[in-house]
Design a protein around this nucleic acid. Structure first.
Lengths: 249, 249
DNA sequence: AGTCGCAAACTGGTATATCAGAGCACGGTC
DNA sequence: GACCGTGCTCTGATATACCAGTTTGCGACT
């Protein structure tokens, strides 16, 4: 019964380990949108039983990254265009709230730290050959730190839960080339640090809305795939799309 | 192997059935804050196996109604004061967004329907002897319908997930007597239907903030209970408080 | 050649059994 | 009398086995 897939971290339960691994694979792009996941095969591969894997996938489904039908199968969620737009509306509500609190509560040190982080995020977004997961981690960290500096645990928790979903959608599609270096996150941080609460909120709002527009545009081919969902389950999932490419948000 | 606890509804899985039952019991007040739940006993009682129950409790924990420690036990969550305040900050963000969309998208029929509903909610809140769960259902329905009329599935889903939590906290404590009839929700609906987007948003913001203040006040005795959480797990949960009483929000 | 139907293979869901760790009561010690 | 250790009991976590429903490929039929 082999039990070595990753040994960098010690998890408190097998289910937690499986959860991290699958989540990583989705964000990394190893598992593409629509790809089917077999709980049994995954369990064998990870050297654990069916139950922990099942529990992990259930949690990921609850977070919106996966979708499953009772006895048919589990696959990486294929969003509809309403899903994506709605998701960004939720994110807008949460992160604007965070921006407001951030502007009021963040210390000078924190503002400096996050501004530096924003520079790294933007520069990574401009590199077409950057590792997708590396970029995502950094981007997620920036948004998470903003929420944390807002001094509200429940809010940052809620944002973290919605963010993984955004990440998977954000990275799909082709990298729009020749756009030159981006300054999206640096601009955002400027607004957040200016000291004006409402300006910070408005800055975040625009940031999210423009992310939404890009995500919608990029996911276009998948929406038709999602439309075929009503018919068969696995047949539509077999459609193969071009592998996802890193893109800025 | 007896299988009859409630037979009013047919569930697609045993886990879904267990989820509904436990959720109902928490909202109803049969399970109080801090009370310990044994998966095995519950499984026996419901006439099903350990696994579906486990799955149901896991989902409830994810929603924030329960808390568990790996091999120690599961209990109804004892919030800290930061938990409650943070939770209402999240709700504020989401529901203000919903109010904004509602003001723009709701039809005249829907506005009329929800205004009537608001009257019922307020009148039930004024009755000290009203059934707690009945009131909660109606209150939840009002807020859910507002979100639904905002025409954004992801948003109403997010609100629904956060709302059950609020419900459990909202009902704890003693009914503040002699306050006379409330008009909280009727006032809210007036703002939402006035036609001005920003006025609607502001009206919802105030509604949530005042709910928060009342919840914090009412949960005061439990916060000390939560503070003892660091020491022993079960001992602090054994503390018995006065049974919860219906109260308006 | 296209379509329909059937059966094998696979899916997730559930039951039972077992394991390791946490809580807690009891009894001994200081 | 207060404190600490020890062991019993109960908790959730996991493995294995089995079941019912879904998918799908292959073959027969039109």
């Amino acid at each position: 019964m082999p039990r070595k897939v990753i040994e960098t971290a010690e998890y408190e339960s097998l289910a937690a380990e499986a959860y991290s691994i699958v989540r990583l694979r989705i964000l990394r792009g190893d598992l593409e949108i629509g790809q089917i996941i077999s709980r049994r095969k995954l369990a064998t591969e990870l050297g654990m039983s069916f139950l922990p894997v099942s529990e992990a996938l259930m949690k990921l489904e609850f977070e919106g990254l996966l979708e499953s039908r009772p006895r048919a199968g589990t696959r990486v969620r294929i969003p509809t265009i309403q899903d994506v737009q709605g998701h960004y509306i939720v994110r807008e509500a949460l992160e604007v709230q965070a921006a407001r609190l951030f502007a009021a509560a963040a210390t000078a040190n924190e503002k400096q730290e996050l501004t530096r982080l924003a520079v790294r995020v933007d520069s990574l977004a401009s590199q077409p050959d950057a590792d997708r997961y590396h970029y995502l981690s950094l981007h997620e960290k920036l948004h998470r730190r903003i929420a944390e500096c807002a001094r509200c645990g429940a809010l940052s928790e809620a944002i973290e839960k919605t963010h993984a979903l955004a990440s998977t959608w954000m990275c799909v599609g082709r990298h729009s080339e020749g756009q030159g270096p981006r300054r999206t996150h640096q601009d955002l941080m400027e607004k957040l640090c200016a000291g004006d609460t409402e300006a910070a909120a408005e800055g975040m709002r625009r940031h999210i809305v423009s992310s939404k527009d890009r995500a919608v545009e990029r996911l276009q081919p998948f929406f038709q795939m999602g439309a075929a969902r009503g018919t068969t389950y696995a047949r539509s999932a077999r459609n193969q799309f071009a592998p996802p490419v890193l893109l800025a948000s």
